[in-house]
């Protein structure tokens, strides 16, 4: 790990935290404003790459675990890992890795054409939604003793909002690649 990799990881962890602290952004056409924190998790993977992206999320999670109120809405502390959000928080780490992994292997570092748009969206969908929800759903099913399928049905309510986030993550990633391309690691 070169010093610059460490700096990228630290800065992106700080960006994820800052996105949670900033007031939620109202998006045209959607009734509820979106919190940008999970967007930050997707972007960590899509902009920094698998290893650095996942480590940036890990650094952020360690600070939350340490008791800093960095989760969206000013929450923090070890109780959020034990409560029902615990599985999703763990999922963020793997989600960022999967997004970075897909981008690194399927498109070149500065590619911004239609194909790149498509692959970035698919990566954000698979990594930022599927991979994040898997431990999240398993965790809640274990906590509440209910069947995995019931929890899965219950969590479908959040999917439309997350799809919007995946689209925004794709657009942000392409825009950042245009002005400041970074080799994915």
């Amino acid at each position: 790990m070169a010093t610059k990799d460490i700096v990228f990881i630290a800065l992106f962890a700080a960006i994820i935290a800052a996105l949670g602290l900033l007031p939620a952004i109202p998006v045209v056409g959607i009734p509820a404003p979106i919190t940008a924190q999970t967007l930050g998790v997707m972007l960590a993977g899509s902009i920094l790459g698998p290893k650095r992206g996942a480590l940036a999320v890990l650094v952020f999670l360690v600070l939350v675990l340490a008791g800093l109120p960095l989760l969206a809405g000013g929450r923090g502390g070890v109780e959020h890992f034990i409560g029902n959000s615990g599985g999703f928080l763990v999922g963020w780490f793997f989600g960022a890795y999967v997004i970075g992994f897909i981008l690194k292997n399927f498109i070149s570092d500065s590619q911004v054409n239609i194909r790149a748009h498509f692959i970035i969206f698919i990566a954000c969908f698979l990594g930022g939604i599927c991979v994040v929800y898997l431990p999240g759903i398993l965790w809640i099913a274990r906590n509440t003793g209910s069947s995995i399928f019931d929890v899965y049905l219950g969590s479908l309510v959040f999917i439309p909002g997350d799809l919007v986030k995946a689209v925004i993550a794709m657009l942000v990633t392409v825009a950042v690649r245009r002005v400041y391309p970074i080799a994915l690691k």
Binding site: A2, T3, K4, I6, V7, F8, L11, F12, A14, I15, A18, L19, L22, I25, V27, V28, I34, A36, L39, L43, I47, I168, L171, V172, A175, V176, V179, Y180, I182
Partner: peptide, 21 residues
């Protein structure tokens, strides 16, 4: 417009990585 906030925030922040490292 979420792009108008997040894109400059990320670019301006990451551009400092060289100086910091």
């Amino acid at each position: 417009n979420p792009l108008a906030l997040i894109v400059p925030l990320i670019v301006l922040t990451l551009k400092r990585a060289d100086d910091i490292s």
